[in-house]
Design a protein around this nucleic acid. Structure first.
Lengths: 139, 139
DNA sequence: TTTCTAAGTTGTAATCATTACAAGTTAATT
DNA sequence: AATTAACTTGTAATGATTACAACTTAGAAA
């Protein structure tokens, strides 16, 4: 069940976050591009529509959206930060060949963990790396 | 079953990686400090023993050790990279209050995943965030 | 042991992502 | 339409990581 741009817009309104032109553009971009983009990808794409857009604004906006729970940060590699607007629980798989990031379903409750009694868990991330089917057959 | 420094040293030898003084110092540090240190922490601590040590060497060495499978990179936050010499399968929990990273046992096979048929998985990372028991009681 | 050399180390400089900041602009309330 | 706190922008500062060239060394060979 994906959230539409309109729904996301309402969520911002409800949280008293101003609906600036730039913010809405970034939000719309995130809701239509499920590619786990980097700041640079967002910047390069959106600049075509909004030439005055600043990269600082994208950083600020993503931070705002992150705090509002509308986007998630994906740190699957140590040298790039990606953003994800799918906020339901799922895992991330990065193909080390084509660099694409795939979402996959995962039941966090199914984890058999030991040694976390009395730990308050607020956030769970599951990152896999390997080769995607397309890249496997190409080799 | 933790690997001793001697065992790690042999693993380097077997992989034809030269046993330079600096490399052995970093390796020894990693095998005795299970704190998931950053490059800076390693640098600051080791400089006391090896004053001429360069930060570049630490980056190079950690990269070598990573490729040799003797250390793992932990990217639980988007603004710091940590290193781990425990290479058996386990998860990482970061306390957002005291910033400490805890290891926990987890059976990767217990994951119920959907949508990863035909994906070759080479690497799995599980990152949790929250509050550790000590910080919970202090509040 | 001594010699030799490919590989490793070092310090400096370059790069790249992110953040700080001050001046100008705007959403949205009155 | 006026007001103002919040937002945006461009530039500059910061901080982590990488590139590179000169120097040093581990370890093989003689």
């Amino acid at each position: 069940m994906e959230k539409t741009f309109e729904k996301l817009k309402n969520e911002l309104k409800n949280k008293n976050i101003r609906l600036s032109h730039q913010r809405l553009k970034v939000l719309e971009y995130m809701s239509t591009h499920k590619t786990h983009p980097t700041v640079d990808m967002i910047y390069n794409d959106l600049q075509k529509e909004v030439p005055t857009l600043s990269k600082t604004t994208i950083y600020n906006t993503l931070d705002t959206l992150k705090n509002a729970g509308l986007v998630k940060v994906v740190t699957i590699e140590d040298n790039e930060v990606r953003y994800d607007s799918r906020t339901h629980e799922h895992g991330h798989f990065k193909c080390v060949s084509c660099e694409e990031i795939f979402d996959f379903d995962i039941k966090f409750d199914s984890f058999a963990t030991k040694g976390l009694d009395n730990f308050k868990i607020n956030n769970k991330d599951v990152y896999f790396k390997g080769i995607c089917p397309d890249c496997s057959t190409k080799q």
